[in-house]
Write a protein that binds this DNA or RNA. Structure first.
Length: 518
DNA sequence: GGACGGTGAAACTTCAGGTTGCCTC
DNA sequence: GAAGTTTCACCGTCC
């Protein structure tokens, strides 16, 4: 360890080190343990940082306009970027993350305050890696982070082709903490890596796909296969492993994803050579690569659908109550009553049998309701800022959730097809489109066009252009007034109404959209 | 005397992230 | 466990 001389200008160590990094013209990554903390740290450094030039302004502008309407998060990021500072976490959009990463690599951005995201995956070395928090909130309260995580973060210090050295700096609040950090992290050994294979959801998925691929046809082969895995090597408790596998096979059979053939007389023999085969449904579930439990849950929901009222919410709640879509939005104490009320309002549309208030699953169930309410607001055309305020869901997180929901709905579609539930398929297809664009049903035909997203489609609709037919009948001048020339031409082209003559674009006293609406 | 506004202390909340799944409506 | 947020009591000012 080496000591660095700093100007102790402010009482925050992180701030001092950050400003020193700027002063010596180097770059730093600052790791915080929450998104909020990453943002705040970046903001505070930005307030003290001096630089501000055109390249930075252009970059800030790009980050600000990553969405059709900037959220508070976008504004905050833009403010930081103007000073060559950034924050980075899963709540940012893909474009924003790319802007930050690219500009850090080329040196425009000097400091990134981030959550542990940047320690994994993204390759962004810096002269300094500053670890602000070595404790993180877990189920058992605040706990020291694993040594492996510390190594990942400090490993970002030093850029192989640019610097001869790098500095990894951990922040201690007290002297006692300093000793603890030195002992635990600087001189400590990383934890062993444990196999997660024997976790039931993983095992369920693997067992089914091994059988589906005809890679394995008997229970004995299945045992042999898993006996050779890292998990078996590590835990050596083969009996427990076999018991879990047997349980998984039983479940898969009960759910009708696999069948045992010729086992009428062999039940006494545990390690019998009875053949395992997937059913048609089981094979498709394996291909879809979803947890068989999720598949079974969706099958049950769809069976229930015949005597329920159907709404987009029905399917939204169905996908919101799966393992794949976790983590769910948490219902806070303050909103408990509100969510419960909404749940009652939608309860006729719920496909699953709702648990009673006194069962332990109830909390999870309410969380799934909150998650589906968020989706429901999205397809009711609420914007990102609203979702951020109302649900604390940031744009980046929204995108991830939407993508998973789409995949699950696709799976539901496929399962429904096998079950011959044609009437459900139509609804699911529609919902997938609505989720993708974040629109009400009435905009679906408009949004199919290239360059027409939720915002423009809504504007067209308000101007009484409600479907393809309306658009075909509309003249180009009208369309240009609403959409601008480029988009209007593109729309006409897509409708097969190629415009050979570029219209005169000099209309005086052009009507604003608002006037047009009256 | 009461309405209003500002202030600060106390009480209360909340807290990282991610790979691979499909198909193209 | 700590930072951030909300609530609430308290006080001064103004009408």
């Amino acid at each position: 360890m080496k000591s660095i001389k700093l100007d102790d200008e402010f009482d925050s160590a992180v701030l001092n080190i950050a400003l020193d990094t700027l002063k010596i013209g180097k770059q730093a990554l600052i790791f915080a343990n929450t998104k909020k903390s990453a943002e705040k740290t970046a903001e505070e450094i930005s307030k003290k940082a001096k630089s501000n030039d055109e390249i930075l302004s252009a970059m800030a502008e790009k980050a600000l306009n990553a969405l059709s309407k900037p959220t508070k998060q976008c504004e905050r990021l833009a403010f930081c970027l103007k000073k060559g500072i950034a924050f980075h976490h899963a709540g940012l959009t893909q474009e924003q993350k790319a802007v930050i990463e690219d500009n850090f690599r080329n040196g425009n951005v000097k400091i990134i305050c981030c959550t542990p995201t940047l320690a994994y995956g993204v390759d962004l070395p810096a002269y300094r890696a500053i670890i602000k928090d070595l404790k993180r909130y877990t189920a058992h309260g605040l706990a020291w982070i694993p040594v492996l995580d510390y190594l990942q973060m400090s490993g970002r210090a030093g850029r192989p082709n640019y610097d001869n050295e790098g500095q990894a700096i951990a922040i201690a609040l007290t002297n006692g903490e300093k000793e603890k950090i030195e002992e635990r992290y600087v001189n400590g050994l990383p934890e062993d890596i444990y196999s997660k294979l024997a976790v039931e959801p993983v095992l369920r998925t693997y067992v089914l796909s091994l059988i589906a691929a005809n890679f394995i046809t008997t229970k004995k082969q299945l045992f042999d296969f898993f006996d050779r895995t890292f998990y078996a090597h590590q835990f050596k408790d083969l009996r427990r492993l076999h018991a879990t596998i047997s349980k998984v096979i039983d479940m898969l059979e009960e759910w009708e994803f696999i069948m045992r053939s010729g086992d009428d007389f062999s039940s006494a023999n545990e390690l019998s050579d009875e053949k395992l085969k997937t059913t048609l449904m089981g094979k498709r579930v394996a291909e879809l690569y979803i947890d068989p439990l999720t598949a079974y849950f969706m099958i049950t929901c769809m069976r229930n659908a015949s005597d329920k009222k159907l709404d987009a919410f029905s399917f939204l709640q169905m996908v919101s109550h799966t393992l794949e879509i976790r983590p769910l939005l948490k219902v806070g104490i303050r909103e408990y009553d509100k969510v419960q009320e909404s749940m009652l309002e939608f309860s006729d549309f719920l496909l699953e049998n709702e648990p009673s208030m006194y069962e332990p699953e109830y909390e999870d169930f309410l969380n799934s309701v909150k998650t589906s309410l968020m989706f429901n607001h999205w397809i009711s055309e609420q914007n990102e800022e609203f979702l951020l305020e109302e649900y604390n869901v940031r744009p980046g997180e929204l995108r991830v959730k939407l993508e998973i929901a789409d995949w699950l709905l696709y799976a539901a579609e496929e399962i429904g097809r096998i079950m011959h539930y044609q009437y459900l398929l139509k609804e699911i297809v529609k919902l997938r489109l609505r989720l993708k664009y974040g629109v009400k049903e009435e905009l679906l035909s408009l949004v199919r066009l290239e360059n027409i997203g939720r915002a423009r489609a809504r504007i067209l609709f308000r101007n009484r252009l409600r479907d393809i037919k309306d658009l075909k009948n509309a003249n180009l001048t009208t369309l240009t007034q609403i959409l601008g020339e480029k988009t209007a031409l593109s729309v006409k082209r897509q409708l097969g109404q190629e415009q050979s003559v570029v219209p005169e674009n000099k209309r005086k006293g052009q009507i604003s959209l608002r006037d047009w609406e009256e």
